Simulated assay, not measured.
Amino acid sequence: MYSNVRIVMMYTSHPGNIGAVARAMKNMGLGELCLVSPKSFPDIVAERRAAGAKDILADAKVVETFDEALEGCVAVVGASARGRKIPWPVMNPRDCAKKVREFALLPKTGSDQENQNKVAIVFGREDRGLTNDELQRCNYHVHIPTNPDYGSLNVAMALQVVAYELRMDYLLYSGLGDATQAAPTLSPENDGWDEALATSDEVEGLIGHLEAVMIKTEFFDPENPRQLIPRLRRLFQRSRMDKIEVNIMRGFLNTVLKAIKDKC
């Protein structure tokens, strides 16, 4: 199926859940698993639960931070079961599958085509899911509409639901014709995008750069932040900037900082 969809598990406490996720991934044709600081991995319990999917575990990448897990991704989807203070684009698994397809099948541009169009789907801790800060790093949230009287889902169950919808959408779409030739573009009014999309870490670098400039110009008080940075982050995540757009913004911010320095 999609070779550019990355499943990310955050701070998993029980190795059995890693094995169960690997099995669910292989069932649905997904292959890339990234583990952020798991409590125990590699682990024999994970291997037992993985059954015939030990190859997924063998190829799994273990990293220490969320930033490392999102490296190279142009879109990030976070699994969330809770409402948030600031509204964020939320989808059910079926609509999520369509959105992932839009990004995963984008026409590739530029020289570094091998790593383009990487999409991360992030699943949180077993006991409390993803934090607000982590969810703010996501372009979209996916919510599984469970029984409102009992909405608790094991992480592997949640992944299975999302992965199933990914597979069904992919099969239905590719069955209509040659999916590689009929790939949708990011903007329906355009025939294709002229630059590769900015990765999550590039956008985060821009946000950090902007925050530094706002502090320097006294527009932003870090002692009284309110919700300025989360709202700016939502704006940039929603806009889907490409690499050139990020570079333009950062070039402008560097000019602002230089002007401030020269004035002093």
Score class of each variant (00 low, 15 high):
Leu35Trp: 11
Ala24Met: 12
Ala58Ile: 00
Glu71Ala: 13
Glu47Ile: 05
Glu134Ile: 01
Ala104Tyr: 04
Ala120Gly: 07
Arg48His: 15
Cys34Val: 15
Asp59Phe: 06
Leu57Ser: 01
Met25Pro: 01
Ser80Asp: 08
Val63Ser: 06
Asp43Gln: 03
Leu106Arg: 15
Lys108His: 07
Glu126Leu: 12
Ile44Val: 13
Arg94Gly: 08
Ile86Arg: 07
Val74Glu: 15
Ala53Ser: 10
Asp55Trp: 00
Val100Pro: 01
Glu71Arg: 13
Arg49Phe: 14
Gly29His: 03
Ala104Lys: 00
Trp88Val: 08
Leu105Lys: 12
Ser37His: 10
Gln116Arg: 07
Glu68Ala: 15
Leu106Asp: 01
Gln113Cys: 09
Val36Asp: 08
Phe41Gln: 03
Ile121Asp: 00
Ala97Ser: 15
Leu135Gln: 05
Glu32Gln: 13
Leu106Thr: 10
Val62Asn: 01
Leu105His: 10
Leu106Gln: 13
Ala50Ser: 11
Ile18Trp: 04
Asp127Pro: 10
Phe66Thr: 09
Asn115Phe: 06
Leu135Thr: 08
Val74Thr: 14
Val21Ser: 05
Ala79Glu: 02
Gly52Leu: 14
Leu105Met: 15
Thr65Tyr: 06
Gln116Met: 08
Lys54His: 07
Lys26Tyr: 02
Val122Lys: 05
Val36Ser: 09
Met25Phe: 00
Cys138Phe: 04
Lys85Asp: 15
Arg137Glu: 05
Asn117Glu: 11
Arg137Asp: 06
Pro107Lys: 04
Ala22His: 02
Arg94Ala: 09
Ala79Gln: 05
Ala69Arg: 11
Ala22Met: 01
Lys85Asn: 13
Asp67Ala: 14
Arg125Ser: 03
Asp112Ala: 11
Arg125Ile: 02
Asn17Tyr: 03
Lys61Ile: 11
Ile44Asp: 10
Asp67Arg: 14
Lys118Leu: 12
Thr65Asn: 03
Ala75Asn: 01
Arg128Tyr: 15
Arg125Lys: 14
Asp55Met: 03
Pro42Val: 04
Met91Gln: 12
Leu106Ala: 12
Asp133Arg: 13
Glu64Arg: 14
